Amino acid sequence: DESNKPILLPNESQSFERSVQLLDQIPSYDTHKIAVLYVGEGQSNSELAILSNEHGSYRYTEFLTGLGRLIELKDCQPDKVYLGGLDVCGEDGQFTYCWHDDIMQAVFHIATLMPTKDVDKHRCDKKRHLGNDFVSIVYNDSGEDFKLGTIKGQFNFVHVIVTPLDYECNLVSLQCRKDMEGLVDTSVAKIVSDRNLPFVARQMALHANMASQVHHSRSNPTDIYPSKWIARLRHIKRLRQRICEEAAYSNPSLPLVHPPSHSKAPAQTPAEPTPGYEVGQRKRLISSVEDFTE
């Protein structure tokens, strides 16, 4: 099969070098950035008060330690540790928490760990991170309901609301924008112990962030949302095809390698009803078989 044979790379090609550099910018793992907010007593309706908090309760602090690993920003190499735009020179604080497994990295933009500057009256330095995160974990210690939209931002799609209760338990629920209701189930609340709260809140936030990324990708319907490693695979396959075309153009005697095509017509299947918005969006999480067989 010609399409699977190794090909020689061009010795000097600026377009090839640019493509390789672009490939280096696509990590081999999925990345997520999640905002974390603490809401104190009497702050449920005040964005400024929430963003001005420099610490929270003892249970909130224990919750943070379970979310991930504490890292010092100045020691991080952005090409190895995903920071979601946090500055490593102290502009966004000294520490944050991050978490990773074999296929993804997540960083938490924690408002109480970011510096509260006197010259920044409206807390814009914090909002440029927190307001651009799709998902926020809100530790609501106010005793009042927290409403979506209290923290203004164009991309605040989903809130994971943590409400501490007695007996070391917590109520965990989801809020989302109306255009996200087909992807996020907000109907079920959970009672979770303090011990298990970081794991549950983190998983709910990661799932909500993946759904938000799919939702946000609708602005470019021709580019369905893939995982990062599938995006790398697609980029490599496009690069291979372009090299083959350039080689055939410079030397017409060489065969032009095309991806294999299936001449056999697909079997006719009964027509199915058109899937609704929710089903269609969830299918976009699934990769096409052509990603692996071309």
Rank of each mutant, 00 (worst) to 15 (best):
L165K: 02
N140K: 00
L174H: 01
F16P: 06
Q21K: 07
K264E: 15
L70W: 03
S263P: 11
T269D: 10
S219K: 10
S217W: 09
V172S: 00
E47T: 02
E272T: 09
S52A: 14
Q268K: 09
S52W: 02
V119C: 11
P115H: 07
D141Y: 00
V214W: 15
E91T: 08
H262C: 12
E278C: 09
N11P: 10
P273S: 11
P252Y: 10
L22W: 08
F292K: 15
S212R: 01
V160Y: 00
A271I: 11
R240E: 15
T65Y: 06
H258S: 14
P260F: 11
N156L: 06
G90M: 05
I191S: 02
H262R: 08
V119S: 12
E12D: 09
V20T: 09
Y29M: 08
C244A: 11
G149P: 05
D141N: 08
R123K: 08
Y139F: 03
T293H: 09
P198L: 01
A106R: 01
L22A: 15
S44C: 08
N140D: 02
K228I: 09
G280Y: 04
V160T: 01
G93Q: 10
I137G: 00
T96I: 10
F134K: 03
K264H: 14
S212T: 04
K80H: 05
H159Q: 15
T293I: 03
V214Y: 14
P221I: 06
F157A: 11
L73R: 14
K283I: 06
S261Q: 09
Y249C: 14
Q213C: 08
S44D: 03
H122K: 11
A189D: 12
I224P: 13
R218H: 09
A111M: 06
A248F: 08
L239Q: 09
G149L: 02
R123S: 10
E144H: 04
V214A: 05
E272L: 08
L113C: 04
L8H: 09
K33P: 04
D141G: 01
I224K: 10
L174P: 00
F146I: 06
L70G: 06
G85K: 06
P260V: 09
K74Y: 06
T163H: 03
T293R: 06
R202M: 04
A267C: 12
E2W: 09
N45L: 04
A208M: 08
G182K: 07
T222F: 05
S28A: 12
R123E: 10
F108Q: 01
T293Q: 10
R284Y: 09
E47G: 02
G85H: 04
W229Q: 12
H215M: 14
V20A: 07
I26E: 11
G276Y: 06
I110D: 03
F155L: 15
Q21T: 10
L86S: 14
E54Q: 05
Q175K: 08
H122F: 13
S13V: 09
G84Y: 06
N209R: 01
G68K: 05
M114F: 03
D118P: 12
P260G: 15
P259E: 14
V36C: 02
F16G: 05
E144D: 09
S15I: 11
S136R: 02
Y139M: 00
H262K: 10
G56K: 02
Q203K: 01
G90Y: 05
N251L: 13
L67H: 00
G280M: 09
N251Q: 13
T96V: 13
D92Y: 07
Q203N: 09
T112P: 03
L148I: 14
